[in-house]
Amino acid sequence: MSPTRRTTRRPWARRRLPGAAALALLVASGTACSNQAIDQWSRGGMPEGVTKQADIVQTLWNGSWIAALATGVVVWGLILWACIFHRKKKNSPDQLPPQVRYNLPIEILYTVVPVIMVAVFFYFTARDETEITRITKAAPVKVAVEGYQWSWRFTTEYQGQKAVVAGVPVDLSKQSAENPQGPQLVLPVNTQVQFDLHSPDVIHSFWVPAFLFKQDVFPGNVHNHFQITTLNKTGVFVGRCAELCGTDHSKMLFSVKLVPQAEFDQYIKSQAGSAQ
């Protein structure tokens, strides 16, 4: 092969490489988006949970959807069956189908089956709610949550040390998933945490979507608490007030940051004097 031909083919090879790289990147990004969509569908539209209790809620949610869809398939099938096989005949448009005054087996069926379904839903809901709201004395981290018009104060207590973080109504124009506004609550992963909720003014609601759980914050209620067990998932997760509480309700934003245990220990030591 002559030197001239070799030099004329090299530019084509150089042009094919960027094109192949772009195609590979497009396929990879499409696969990632597809995996995210499948993962979102598998959760029934719920956010990814970061606590042990969130897994319980997710299982109950998925089971409820499966039961509802199964019921819907049966109902839709009966409707279609009645429309197709019991429609008015063309050769005898004036003839009515047989008129039945009552059918005892069918009446028993559509009375007993819904009662059984409601009982099953009640059992699983009560069982999971009991587990989610169960309080033990083993939580090493305790957080006093004070919701006030219109922000939050978090007092974290761990091994005799305290860290206090308080906020003011946030500037919504600066709020973003990458830069959440408001006070930030720092918690360790793989740890049991107890929340004690209180309000000095009106009813608020402490809600972190990634917990798949929220609880109202009542003024004067000193027995309003719950516990979570964080999973091994670090990151920053937004939270907000879920109870309309006044003019700046929409500005009651905060975030929860889950960090490794060593980083949490360092955070507590550095913030030990903030309680004062």
Rank of each mutant, 00 (worst) to 15 (best):
M1E: 11
P3T: 06
R5W: 04
R6C: 01
T7W: 12
T8C: 03
R9L: 14
R10T: 13
R10M: 14
R10F: 15
P11F: 08
P11R: 10
W12F: 14
R16L: 15
R16W: 12
L17S: 07
L17V: 15
L17Y: 03
A20K: 03
A20N: 02
A22K: 11
A28G: 08
G30D: 07
A32N: 07
S34W: 12
S34L: 08
N35K: 11
Q36T: 06
A37N: 05
I38E: 05
D39L: 10
Q40L: 13
M46A: 15
E48D: 11
E48V: 11
G49L: 01
T51L: 06
K52F: 06
Q53F: 00
D55A: 14
D55P: 00
V57F: 13
T59Q: 11
T59K: 09
L60A: 10
N62R: 12
W65M: 13
I66N: 03
A67H: 05
A68V: 13
A68M: 15
L69A: 12
L69C: 09
A70E: 04
V75Q: 07
W76F: 15
W76G: 15
A82V: 12
A82S: 13
F85T: 07
H86K: 13
R87P: 00
K90H: 11
N91E: 08
D94T: 08
P105A: 06
T111H: 07
T111F: 13
V115A: 15
I116D: 08
F124Q: 09
R127M: 05
D128T: 10
I132M: 11
T133F: 13
T133D: 13
T136M: 03
A139L: 04
V141P: 02
V141A: 02
V143D: 02
W150Q: 10
W152P: 00
T155L: 06
T155F: 02
T155S: 06
T156Y: 00
E157W: 02
E157G: 02
Q159S: 07
G160I: 07
Q161E: 10
K162L: 01
A166G: 10
V170D: 05
D171F: 03
N179Q: 11
Q181D: 05
P183M: 07
Q184C: 07
L185K: 03
P188V: 01
P188N: 04
T191S: 09
Q192F: 00
V193N: 02
Q194M: 12
F195W: 07
L197E: 02
P200H: 03
P200Q: 05
D201N: 12
H204M: 07
S205E: 14
F206I: 00
F206W: 05
V208L: 00
P209T: 06
Q215E: 10
V217E: 02
F218R: 12
P219H: 14
P219C: 13
P219W: 08
P219K: 10
P219T: 04
G220S: 04
V222H: 14
V222G: 05
H225A: 10
F226H: 06
Q227A: 04
T230C: 04
N232E: 11
K233P: 00
T234Q: 10
G235C: 05
V238H: 05
V238N: 11
V238W: 04
E243C: 01
S250V: 09
L253R: 15
S255V: 04
V259F: 00
V259D: 01
Q261K: 13
D265A: 02
Y267S: 01
K269G: 00
A272Y: 00
A275M: 04
